[in-house]
């Protein structure tokens, strides 16, 4: 087992940096501190995200243990980690929305969820017993980035509030997503 854990692997980190001097250097420090070997940096300076961040892709080599420490170090430094290795969208969340789903434009609701960037809708099941003009319900299955469950749920609450929909959240306390 220790043999496997000591294997050096290549990982891709996708970060989003605040557009301020020194941010790139700051984002590389946790990688160096925790023993990652930097392979390449792709700094998309001209390609600002809708939220005003600059996407950066960093390829590194590290052991799985060290890689975990690097991701933790980046989060602790307040660096936005969008993708870490193969962990993107590793958490599955189910929610139920109810209300005037059709009238409030269901496809726009889905687009808004996708726009939150840390979740994607993987399945939807709609129940409209009284036809499209009345109250209907939908179960949505979301794939969320690792560790972003609370952010995703908070975004869902905002969307539900804005459209006057009832949201039934999954129980997530105590790490049970």
């Amino acid at each position: 087992m220790s043999e496997v854990r000591n294997d050096v692997q290549a990982y891709t980190l996708r970060l989003e940096l605040v557009d301020e001097p020194g941010e790139l250097l700051r984002s590389l420090q946790p990688i160096a501190e925790h023993g990652g070997n930097l392979l390449s940096i792709f700094h998309e300076r001209g390609n600002v995200t809708p939220r005003g961040y600059i996407p950066v892709e960093v390829d590194i080599e590290a052991t799985p243990d060290r890689f975990d420490n690097i991701v933790e170090g980046l989060s602790e430094a307040g660096i936005n980690v969008i993708q870490a290795g193969t962990e993107r969208y590793s958490e599955r969340l189910t929610i139920i929305l109810s209300g005037h789903l059709i009238e409030t434009d269901l496809s726009d609701t889905l687009t808004q969820i996708e726009a939150t960037r840390n979740a994607t809708v993987t399945d939807i099941s709609l129940s409209a017993p009284a036809g499209s003009i009345d109250v209907s319900s939908a179960r949505l299955q979301l794939a969320a980035e690792s560790g972003s469950t609370e952010d995703v749920l908070s975004a869902m609450r905002d969307i539900a509030d804005e459209k006057d929909l009832q949201l039934v959240e999954p129980l997530t306390v105590g790490g049970r997503a």
Partner: peptide
């Protein structure tokens, strides 16, 4: 109070 039978049905499917 606002929950409907169809919401529970949707949950049960999963």
């Amino acid at each position: 109070q606002e929950l409907s039978g169809s919401m529970l049905d949707l949950a049960a499917e999963d």
